[in-house]
Design a protein around this nucleic acid. Structure first.
Lengths: 156, 156
DNA sequence: GCCTGTTAGTTAGTGCACTAACTAATTGAG
DNA sequence: CTCAATTAGTTAGTGCACTAACTAACAGGC
């Protein structure tokens, strides 16, 4: 009983910490991304496109673990901002090819300073950032497995 | 140049990892919290109230690092669910005292099993959970400092 | 050439989470 | 006591992020 009561407190520092950390870090990005006219999720999409473009919506969603329903309006806002184009693929009319405009491609130069600025803002060196990244990836993997195990047999 | 290009990739694994981990873990909570009829943010508010009730809205916001504008509709939904009451404080009519209903207090018993279930789902032992928590708290602190430093003098 | 089933995106609706603007109550200065 | 400044919540509006339901386009079998 007492042990479980403590768990309820510890708990509040685990999942709770993750949520708050995520929100806090995103908030810390905000002023840095403001000159680029990007929100944090938009920034992540642009990163994906700077690595490879054009890309299909489904492709971006797979890279960022986002539903197409989330990306659809987000991409329209990026198009309205003049950073990307949205055209149906000629090969497959179902697929939507998202490509960078010259302005979107040029934005990458400004974005190059973002990681360094953020590392400094968060007081992280490359080592601790890497360690953190590994913890996050482990969590993501575990959560994905837990998710896929929902439907199947759960012992107790 | 090449170093900065790499940063742009590494970056994608840092802030990106944090966002995805947060979303993934919250998604993993969803089926566990569903029987309690709580979303994850609502669960966090209930945790705060199980620790101490009644509490004022501002108080809850300070504990969870949430704006009152975020809590206001959330608390109304918890009230509609029958878990909390919302009454203006007699001492200070501006303040809203949020208290547990019997149903809300009773829900705690069901919630006791949540932390253990989630630790198992995420493959975490108490040690790694604690380590993770410390990393998160450090990030939160750093982000808060970065945030407060925006207005003041920034060298470089 | 059709019909069935699948796949890619979009739309609708719910719920956070934030900022800005507002209302109402309290406090403090004079 | 009265008025200005502060404080606590609420409302309005924007943007994620999800599920469910829908449209359009492709793919295979017949």
């Amino acid at each position: 009983m007492a042990a479980k009561d403590n768990d309820l407190l510890l708990e509040r520092q685990l999942c709770f910490g993750l949520s708050v950390a995520s929100r806090s870090v995103i908030a810390a990005y905000k002023p840095v991304l403001a000159p680029l006219r990007l929100t944090h999720p938009q920034y992540l999409v642009m990163l994906a496109l700077w690595e490879e473009a054009p890309r299909k919506v489904k492709d971006i969603g797979a890279a960022l673990l986002l539903e197409p329903a989330t990306l659809s309006p987000l991409l329209k806002r990026l198009e309205a901002a003049g950073y990307v184009t949205r055209h149906r693929s000629e090969a497959d009319e179902r697929a939507l090819a998202v490509d960078l405009t010259p302005a979107g491609a040029a934005l990458r130069e400004q974005a190059l300073s973002v990681p360094g600025t953020m590392m400094a803002r968060l007081g992280l060196d490359r080592q601790s950032a890497t360690a953190l990244h590994q913890s996050m990836m482990a969590l993501i993997t575990a959560a994905a497995q837990a998710d896929s195990a929902v439907g199947s047999g759960r012992s107790t």
